[in-house]
Design a protein around this nucleic acid. Structure first.
Lengths: 234, 234
DNA sequence: GCAAAAGTGTTTTCGCTACACCCATGC
DNA sequence: GCATGGGTGTAGCGAAAACACTTTTGC
């Protein structure tokens, strides 16, 4: 078997001792005034009955991102999401059974696109990022890293809009930022900054509540802006 | 064979159709007043005799980063480098022979740590990032992405110091930034900004040249600062 | 009419940018 | 003494932060 690989010049690719490769996906949404992440309960060992990030193996003919989108549809029924590669975790002993390298993505979905309503009996649930259960494998480390990346990119891109419904009030937008950054923001400064960028546009609709109605805005840019921050150095 | 995997509960890991996994590393250095990247000439098909980013397979018991450090020592003899995971490329047809997923890192080495001196006959050479040869596989895409990330992180971290020798003049530091960003910077503003951060400290040595001697500085922080940029949004 | 959330401006501070000349040395 | 790179300060502008009151609705 090894000699066949040698003849084909394939041994440089790792020969016969290949690690398994999976894709996992950290799915964020905003729900009940909180930043939530979707977790699934493991049905088999190791870490049986513990919560984990959804994931699965990559099929021979699909790209990594195709594999993640397939997983997303299976878990949430959602097609249209923001997706970004997060990191590849490959420590030799992260799975006790065997060598597994996992390419982790994170996804941002808005709650109005979720048609599925999980109940408590399901093995799939939204957890608050701020009150996580004990997690299988190295998934706690992965979630911490995902939150860090989300906060980080929120600061210099318009990626936060991917978590919001099509129409939203400025207060809802501010609350979204506050939930993710886990800090309070100044209302006037927030509104001035958002409006001065022209990133949102006013609709002619309002949201009625118990008090004064709030004007609804929509995201104005055709594409999410993922440009670089102004530089600090030098 | 498949049934054995089923019994062990391993089919969720991808069963028997595993892709090959390699690590590649984009090695940057500053040399001859230019930003250089280390490339190796391929000895076998496909893309025989074309230049490529160095890389190799991951051994069963080593982490991804360990594999990269091993490659780095093999190619450059350098142990002490800044290393960062760049991206994982996994399109189904990026290698014409078979499915190969590659985890790409980038490394920053300072020229004073390189003891190897390649000559033109060698199959390993430093190329200017601004005059690259035709590259094997999707390696041109990988290098472009690596340069983007390097520039990007240069702007809000102190990672640039990893490319410099222990002692350097402020002009050398500025030239390093200019080489990487490929733009001219204002001397007074550059020096004020660098000095105001306290990130460098004056030594009592000078570099003698043809003209007025230049004071030598050293990097003051114990660790590279890789913190976030001040936020643009919101 | 009152409770509650929506909406709105000004002032101060700080960092960024643009810009030109003297200094120390080798030859 | 002159050519060359080393080294320094200031003024103007724009973004960020701090901060409190009026408006509109439901009840």
């Amino acid at each position: 078997m090894s000699s066949t690989l040698d003849i084909l010049g394939l041994n440089e690719l790792g020969g016969i001792e290949r690690p398994a490769v999976t894709v996992d996906v950290v799915i964020f949404t905003l729900l009940d005034n909180d930043l939530k992440v979707l977790l699934v309960k493991r049905r088999s060992p190791p870490f049986q009955a513990m919560w984990a990030i959804p994931g699965g193996f990559v099929k021979p003919d699909e790209s990594l991102e195709d594999a993640v989108r397939r997983e997303l549809v299976e878990e949430t029924g959602v097609h249209d999401v923001y997706l970004e590669q997060l990191y590849t975790f490959g420590d030799a002993r992260r799975d006790p059974r065997m060598r597994v390298i996992t390419v982790v993505y994170f996804a941002l979905v808005s709650v109005d696109k979720l048609d599925v309503d999980f109940d408590e009996l399901d093995a799939v649930t939204w957890f608050s990022m701020y009150t996580l259960p004990t997690l299988a494998f190295d998934h706690e480390k992965i979630l911490k890293y995902a939150l860090q990346r989300l906060r980080y990119k929120l600061e210099y891109t318009t990626l936060g809009f991917a978590l919001l419904p099509e129409e939203f009030t400025l207060t809802e937008l501010q609350q979204a930022y506050e939930m993710i950054l886990n800090e309070k923001l100044d209302k006037r400064n927030f509104r001035r900054k958002i409006l001065s960028t022209g990133i949102v546009e006013l609709t002619d609709r309002v949201r009625m509540g118990d008090h004064r109605p709030a004007r609804l805005y929509r995201f104005a840019a055709a594409e999410l802006q993922l440009e670089a921050a102004r530089r600090k150095f030098p």
